[in-house]
Write a protein that binds this DNA or RNA. Structure first.
Length: 264
DNA sequence: ACATTGACCTGAGAGC
DNA sequence: TGCTCTCAGGTCAATG
């Protein structure tokens, strides 16, 4: 199953860009109004009527679809959200909460099984990002090792919690924080003030590399590099580096996984 | 300032 | 086969 973190949202963005851009939206069907949360069904449907998705931007775990007539439709995927473009009505995916019908007869479904995601509208991306107190995007070119280190050290918490804090760096969730720490050989509960600059640089480089690499193989974990922890989650999977058992660890209420041998 | 806990929400899959 | 029930972990809010 896909847990929508930054690499997954890159994947959704690619799908969206390859299918849904520049087509007139004829109709928007809201199957479950609770997914809108901040906006009304009327506002959404009227805003999108005869409009077009002009481009898209990803920020953290959010996808902003720019509308030809101004403003942005914002997709947040919660834990179980995704997008699927389809042609025939009978192909409509399960748990589709909102469906966009295009002039060409095709459709885009916003799927969200557990209803923890949200669709929203905004006039301005920057103010939305500010209002939601999102930190710098994890893959932003403006984020370098120095700034990353400063951000991480600004919180006195454990590494895993700091990595997942969207106010510091936006985009990393439970799965990829585990992977980044695993690849760097750091224990999830190590404190942010226990690392030196060299270790932070390594952590930073691994973060960038893992997020980029993973985005190419969403839904096909077998194609990930052989030393990744990710395919070994949830099961009797062993550590791909030392062969030892993967253990669960509760960090800030999250179910983290790590190798006690490789991550001291 | 940070940690902890619970609420939101639903269904896949485990276990019996 | 079918029932029950645990569990998944993104984000926010309340409490310690």
């Amino acid at each position: 199953m896909i847990m929508p973190e930054l690499p997954d949202v890159i994947h959704f963005k690619n799908h969206f860009d390859n299918t849904a851009l520049n087509q007139t939206i004829e109709k928007t069907s809201v199957q479950n109004e609770k997914i809108l949360k901040e906006i009304s069904k009327q506002k959404l449907t009227s805003w999108l009527k005869k409009n077009k998705f002009k481009s898209s931007n990803r920020y953290g775990k959010y996808l902003f679809a720019e509308l030809a007539k101004g403003g942005y439709l914002i997709f947040h995927f919660g834990m179980t959200g995704s997008l699927a473009y389809f042609k025939e009505e009978k192909e409509e995916p399960r748990h589709a909460r909102v469906i966009f019908d295009f002039e060409n007869g095709n459709h885009l479904a916003y799927i969200c099984r557990r209803m923890l995601g949200e669709l929203d509208l905004t006039e301005d991306m920057d103010s939305f990002i500010e209002d939601h107190e999102l930190g710098i995007d994890a893959l932003s070119d403006e984020l370098d090792a120095k700034r990353f280190t400063e951000l991480m050290k600004s919180r006195r918490s454990d590494l895993k919690t700091a990595l997942m804090n969207q106010e510091l760096i936006a985009g990393i969730g439970n799965v990829y924080s585990d992977e980044i720490l695993f690849q760097t050989g750091l224990h999830p509960k190590k404190r942010t003030d226990e690392l030196d600059d060299k270790q932070y640089k390594k952590l930073f480089q691994n973060m960038k590399r893992i997020l980029k690499t993973s985005s190419k193989y969403i839904g096909q974990v077998h194609r990930l590099p052989k030393n990744y922890l990710l395919p070994n989650r949830d099961g009797e999977g062993n550590c791909p580096k030392c062969g030892g058992p993967i253990e669960k660890i509760n960090v800030s209420g999250r179910n983290g996984q790590y190798c006690p041998n490789c991550q001291q």
